[in-house]
Design a protein around this nucleic acid. Structure first.
Length: 645
RNA sequence: GCUGGCGUAGCUCAAUGGCAGAGCAGCUGAUUUGUAAUCAGCAGGUUGGGGGUUCGACUCCCUUCGCCAGCUCCA
């Protein structure tokens, strides 16, 4: 091998010798033909353009059109193309940043007036124009100083600000047509690769996510290599809209909000309240089975106490305060204080530990008005909250127990989930070594359970680090529900102690944790997950009795009473409508079973069940139907709940 | 909280400065019907609240409450 040759190694272990300075494109197309075509590549693990030259021995992996990584590259390029279009139409616009994100891309601009729907159409059409020109993305490396000069000269102050914080002496920029953007790359070879895209929305976004910095206008869009992919994604969005719990909550008459009551305050209608009761009863049983003790604390606690806990200093802006007999009280945003008071109410022995207090605790938090969102973000909500007080050496086992608890419960509802560990935030209390101890306790528990997790730096609670569990719903969106938080601080502040085997006082460790999180949020996620079609054990109405004519109503009522007696949640549709009409109605209410009664059924003293998926069951006695429902409830709730709530 | 958009009958939506409307739901009557919508009639409104401009405001302006998208923040 002479000095002008270099060796390229491929992921399958093969290798090739090529001359120094050969482009990525040439190497790839020569030795590894791709079915769909190459978009970019990874050179020694680093993403590069196809046009890049290879100067030394390297490992090379092609990124093929259609792969996830190629789509990220495409979307990033789409953001550049959009920015080019915006600059062409609004030359005075200043560009911020424009990355690819999950499902699409965005780009931020500083403009005189916000973009309108019509602007988006104009921008889209300009983008199509740019795409048809098949402009190459050209990469240029320059010194940082030169880049600063260049962007300062073209008035791109946001790019200059970014550059000034860079530490690398060299940076790269990309140019397609007359548009130049500071960018690491890589990009698609030319604009013609963008076959399918759509601009979706405009919204304000703070520069660099900082609410003290100016607000730019952000345009969101999505992009695909083919029209099929775009269509599928738009269909997915439409599907998500149909499952929106706010829409279903109204349609299924589960809950409502009204400005007369106030923002972020849920009003549960009978059916929604029933579902919540089922969930809560389920939870009480699950907690008792696992050695938790159910407790109830007050809603108002003296402000003095919130000062001692640190909530007043660290959480005040989220709390509501009131005054009683010239005494200041805070409405609880968390349940931990009264749980600690219960612990403190007498001398505790190490033999009692771990103590696990569970409360379906209703809390109030003053969330900023702009963040409220249906059931998923409210100002009054009920947590399935527990505080575990244990000896330090019991901590690991307790955390593992909670992880098992979460795993089991999520399995029952059919959720998949991801775990994250959040570390110490800026605004927090406690000693560094305690934070470290708690954080490693959480990590160790997850590792021992063999569960993968991500680290979320600086995202912990003010009193301790936490494990967050993000649920994935049927549409693959993430929702934070369960959380497990370690706390060495509050036991200290409240001087919680137990008497150890040595007869001396010791400090317990506290774990704050929720399983479903907030009943409100969990219900919202459940509604979207099941698209409103709850499994039988959770359905507020399990069976709607529908008669062919009014003459079977007496028998229908008799059947209904018999089923209710057994604990089946049954109702009779008394309206003198045609059978098809009543079936349709029950169907749209997503009621699991419709029990049809005509003359035939009356004669046989039976009912003809129809499932909501349209499946017709054999004629059966009401008693047999109750058995069937009971069996189905037990099966779908993994033996937890049969008939009744 | 911030930026932008929005608020009309129970629900979904019309009416761009000149008589507030439709479909569905509701009620009444007729129909008595076999697995996703029977027909007819009736009723339904301080156009989110308050203030202003105007001969005249659902429509324009101010203010307030609420909703939506996103940002920031979070169970």
């Amino acid at each position: 091998m002479n000095s002008d040759e270099i060796r390229i190694t491929f992921p399958d272990g093969r290798s090739e010798t090529v001359s120094r300075g050969t482009s990525v494109q040439d190497v790839l197309s020569k030795v590894k033909p791709s079915r769909d075509g190459w978009i970019a590549a990874k050179l020694n693990g680093r993403m590069v353009d196809l046009a890049g030259k290879i100067e030394e021995d390297a490992a090379l992996e092609g990124i093929e059109k259609g792969s996830e990584e190629a789509t990220v590259v495409l979307r990033h390029s789409a953001a550049h193309i959009m920015a080019q279009a915006v600059k062409a139409i609004f030359p005075e616009a200043r560009i911020g940043i424009g990355p690819a994100i999950e499902n699409g891309f965005y780009y931020d601009f500083e403009v005189e007036r916000p973009f309108t729907e019509e602007d988006l159409e104009k921008i889209e059409s300009k983008m199509r124009d740019i795409i048809s020109q098949k402009l190459a993305f050209k990469r240029t490396e320059v010194s940082r100083e030169e880049a600063i000069r260049f962007f300062a000269q073209s008035g791109e102050k946001y790019k200059v600000e970014l550059l000034e914080e860079f530490t690398d002496p060299n940076v790269s920029y990309y140019q397609q047509g007359d548009f130049v953007d500071l960018c690491r790359g890589p990009h698609i070879p030319h604009t013609g690769h963008l076959k399918a895209f759509k601009l979706l929305s405009v919204a304000g976004a703070y520069w660099r996510g900082d609410e003290h910095k100016p607000m730019l206008q952000r345009i969101y869009g999505t992009a695909f290599f083919d029209v099929e992919g775009l269509k599928k994604y738009l269909h997915f969005l439409a599907e998500a809209q149909k499952r929106d719990h706010r829409r279903l909550g109204k349609e299924l008459d589960l809950f409502s909000f009204t400005d007369e009551v106030g923002a972020g305050m849920v009003i549960y209608h009978p059916k929604g309240a029933l579902v919540r009761h089922i969930l809560e009863n389920f939870e009480k049983r699950e907690h008792l089975r696992r050695g938790y003790q159910i407790v109830i604390g007050p809603t108002l606690l003296k402000t003095e106490l919130w000062k001692r806990s640190g909530h007043f200093d660290n959480y005040r802006e989220n709390m509501y305060f009131t005054e009683i007999d010239e005494q200041s009280y805070g409405i609880k945003p968390m349940n931990c204080l009264s749980h600690m008071m219960i612990f403190k109410s007498k001398i505790r022995s190490y033999r009692e530990l771990p103590i696990r207090y569970f409360e379906l605790g209703t809390v109030h938090r003053h969330e900023k008005s702009g963040v409220l969102h249906g059931l998923l973000r409210v100002r009054q909500f009920t947590q399935d909250d527990a505080h575990i007080l244990c000896m330090p050496e019991q901590l690991n086992q307790e955390i593992k127990n909670i992880i098992d608890f979460v795993t089991e419960v999520m399995g029952i509802f059919g959720f998949e989930y991801e775990m994250e560990i959040s570390t110490r935030p800026e605004k927090s209390i406690g000693a560094d070594e305690d934070w470290e101890r708690a954080t490693s306790a959480l990590m160790k528990a997850l590792e021992e359970k063999g569960l993968p997790f991500q680290i979320n730096e600086g995202d912990g609670a003010f009193y301790g680090p936490k494990i967050d569990v993000k649920l994935k719903d049927a549409l693959d969106r993430r929702w934070q529900c369960a959380t497990i938080q370690c706390d060495f601080t509050l036991p200290e502040r409240f001087d919680l102690t137990y008497i150890g085997p040595d007869g001396a006082k010791h400090r317990p460790v506290m774990v704050h944790r929720v399983i479903l999180g907030a009943m409100e949020r969990f219900l919202g996620v459940l509604i979207e997950h099941f698209a409103g079609a709850f499994p039988v054990w959770l359905a507020p109405v399990q069976a709607m009795i529908v008669t062919v004519t009014d003459s079977q109503l007496d028998f229908a009522n008799q059947v209904c009473r018999e089923l209710q007696e057994r604990g089946v949640r049954a109702e009779v549709d008394m309206r003198s409508e045609k059978l098809g009409y009543k079936i349709r109605d029950a169907q749209m209410q997503k009621i699991p079973y419709m029990l049809v009664i005509g003359d035939k059924e009356v004669a046989a003293g039976a009912i003809a069940p129809r499932k909501r998926d349209g499946m017709q069951l054999e004629l059966m006695q009401p008693r047999e139907f109750a058995d069937l429902i009971e069996k189905e409830c037990l099966e779908t709730s993994r033996g937890r709940i049969g008939l009744g709530i």
